[in-house]
Design a protein around this nucleic acid. Structure first.
Length: 669
DNA sequence: ATGTACCTCTTTTTT
DNA sequence: AGAGGTACAT
């Protein structure tokens, strides 16, 4: 068989063992850079070549990006028709697929809308104001976090019986249901409930997927584990891949015990450790090992590699963040110009997004291209949300949050007073706002003017809802016409301070419509499918643009998980930042340690860690201490120094300026 | 309906 | 320091 030669033989022995162990529970502990993706994709290919129907294989990931990558990699190893039959999906889209078929049994309508975080916040703000008045100090974001935690753990958000948050939680859940909407957590909760309460549905899904694989298993939460236990059939063919040492999403509900105590959930698994690292030099790996050793609760792994010894990591203290930026950027410039190091090979890693600012400035000053990873999600942009609100409303009239956005975007003669009345009427009668403004009793109580505006709005809505509900309708074209009809451009222009901003926002709308066009051509799932995938795929605009662009990567350590760079600078590693002071209060020092571990293991050859003696915080300068993690790093693997000694300064005050001026001159000259 | 002044907050953010 | 949200005024 051609495959076994190409595929399995390319793996090292533990990887191959993992790929060949197809039956029963399997736990693959894949350390950083140990060829996890290759192992998983080869395993899938091996199953297919073993005559397992690809339609019976399910691979679950956390991100769409990971799912797409896996799909592409597997596609190179098996026949295209086979690859097409595989299911490779995120947890959340898997849940949507389950729910679109059975949510009616749970008391929701099949047309439910998925609420993103900003929708949730909008709803929560309304509820908090209604329940507690304006001057209540419960903020929507905190409520959101608490409610999400409650949903994930099954415990009430507060153990104080009288606490406001409990009422907010109850009201929120009730209203979501009335709005025919679900949030991200509900997707999991409802899918679990659907499977738990309906043995026929459970059996159906268990039969559909006899072989299940889960990527980044250390990031699964309690609900995801429950879901897995429900869809894994009696054969127990479940294979999970992960690294407890890289569990850095505990604050988002990830439950590290899922991987630490895997045996409790699936008995007698085959456990395979991947410890041969294909990324970093041994000097870097020993440094990483020396740190992570200090975590007590872990599955012990010791990474090693065949990449040779390599250079020791430099640990350098800086006077302040500005100097730190000067230094790092100076080195990047030098490595690029003098040593032909491509900018793409280099990354600056940090704990907080705010730390990237100084770096950006200095990079721009020196005209070094860079890509900032993270930032505002494309689908969270105002103009994009506007359009999506229209489309969501067309398919789900009960979606009050979208209706409230649409009804005055642009203004159409329906004022705050009328909206307030409609909202109140909808609450009193337990109906949606859409139902309220179509209610004869309600309309009768209004002025003729308001009546006219509302009737026009209702007509408009129905007209588009009819088109939107037509399976064959080209919703991209429909959207284009819609925007023309409401003269959205004029509205948008008014809301923009500059022409540049206007252009930008208009481009975003155009891009959204382009996306709809291609979805319309590729997918049979219609507008509903498009909106689902949009809600579940918070593509980051900058990333998309930058991914193909060239430049130095500026990235948080969280976002860097899974990436690698020949040259890495981890900046601002001070006590209170890494470990973050809030994590110390919350007792998650171990997770911070893992975060630094993730940072270190991104580096392939050349790693530098810096910290500052002082830094501006919230405006004014504060003294800083080096991270307490430095004490845990093996001294043998480090070269410690300071900016002052490195720049070999004359005892002159402006030595720094002088030094860099000379260097710049040399480089550009 | 639109602007403006003030007030608060400030870790990470796969869906 | 800076952003983002709110409240109040126009």
């Amino acid at each position: 068989m051609k495959f076994s030669k190409q595929g399995l033989l390319a793996l090292n022995p533990p990887q191959r063992a993992a790929a060949e162990q197809i039956h029963g529970p399997v736990l693959i502990l894949a350390g950083a850079g140990t060829g996890k993706t290759r192992t998983v994709t080869t395993r899938i290919a091996a199953m297919v070549h073993d005559e397992i129907p690809p339609s019976q294989i399910l691979a679950v990931t956390f991100t769409n990006k990971a799912a797409n990558e896996m799909r592409e990699r597997v596609a190179t190893m098996i026949e295209p028709e086979q690859a097409e039959q595989l299911t490779i999906s995120t947890f959340h889209s898997l849940c949507v697929r389950i729910l679109r078929t059975c949510i009616e049994r749970l008391g929701y309508k099949r047309t439910f809308t998925i609420y993103t975080q900003s929708d949730q916040l909008g709803l929560l703000r309304r509820i908090i104001v209604r329940l507690a008045g304006r001057d209540e100090n419960l903020d929507a974001k905190l409520a959101n976090t608490l409610i999400s935690q409650a949903k994930n753990t099954g415990k009430p958000p507060s153990d104080r019986e009288e606490a406001l948050i409990n009422d907010v939680y109850r009201a929120y859940q009730k209203e979501l249901k009335q709005l025919n909407a679900v949030d991200f957590d509900d997707l999991l909760i409802l899918a679990v409930r659907g499977l738990e309460e309906n043995p026929d549905i459970r059996r159906e899904w268990q039969r559909r997927y006899r072989f299940i694989m889960v990527d980044e298993f250390q990031d699964t939460n309690h609900l995801q584990m429950t879901l897995l236990r429900l869809i894994v059939g009696p054969e127990q063919n479940i294979c999970v891949v992960g690294d407890d040492d890289q569990s850095i999403y505990g604050w988002r509900g990830a439950d590290i015990t899922n991987i630490l105590e895997f045996e409790r959930h699936f008995s007698d698994p085959t456990v395979i450790k991947l410890e041969e690292n294909y990324r970093s030099t041994n000097a870097i790996l020993r440094l990483a090992n020396s740190l992570i050793r200090h975590n007590l609760n872990r599955r012990e792994k010791t990474l090693w590699s065949g990449k040779g010894e390599g250079e020791k990591t430099r640990l350098i203290s800086m006077p302040d963040a500005e100097t730190e930026a000067d230094f790092v950027v100076g080195e990047i410039l030098e490595k690029h110009r003098l040593r032909q190091r491509p900018y793409d090979d280099m990354a600056i890693l940090f704990r907080m997004n705010t730390q990237s600012r100084v770096m950006e400035e200095k990079l721009r000053e020196n005209q070094i291209p860079y890509k900032l990873i993270g930032g505002q999600s494309f689908y969270e942009r105002r103009e994009v949300k506007d359009v999506l609100a229209y489309l969501n409303l067309f398919l789900n009239h009960d979606d009050d949050i979208s209706l409230l956005r649409v009804i005055s975007t642009p203004p159409r003669g329906i004022g705050d007073g009328t909206i307030e009345l409609a909202t109140q009427f909808s609450i009193d009668h337990q109906i949606s706002i859409h139902a309220a403004i179509n209610d004869l009793e309600f309309l009768g109580a209004l002025s003729t003017r308001a009546q006219k505006s509302l009737l026009a709005f209702a007509e408009f809505l129905n007209r588009y809802a009819d088109i939107a509900a037509t399976k064959s309708a080209n919703y991209a074209e429909m959207t284009r016409e819609l925007l023309k009809e409401i003269d959205y451009d004029s509205f948008l222009r008014k809301g923009c301070k500059t022409d540049e901003e206007f252009d930008n926002r208009r481009r975003n709308v155009a891009e959204l419509i382009d996306g709809m066009h291609s979805h319309f051509e590729k997918s049979k799932r219609g507008l509903r499918g498009f909106l689902d995938s949009v809600a579940l795929m918070q593509d980051r605009e900058d990333e998309k643009k930058d991914a193909d662009g060239k430049g130095v990567s500026l990235i948080t350590m969280h976002a860097a998980k899974g990436l690698e760079f020949p040259v890495c600078y981890i900046i601002g590693v001070e006590e209170g930042i890494l470990p973050h002071s809030r994590s110390l209060e919350e007792g998650s020092r171990d997770e911070e340690r893992r975060l630094l571990y993730v940072g270190i293991t991104r580096a392939m050859q050349d790693l530098t860690i810096t910290w500052c003696h002082s830094r501006k915080r919230y405006g004014d300068k504060m003294p800083c201490m080096p991270s307490s993690f430095f004490r845990e790093l093996s001294k043998e693997e480090l070269i410690e120094s300071s900016y002052e000694t490195l720049s070999a300064a004359p005892a002159d005050e402006d030595f720094a300026a002088d030094y860099f001026a000379r260097m710049k001159e040399m480089l550009s000259g």
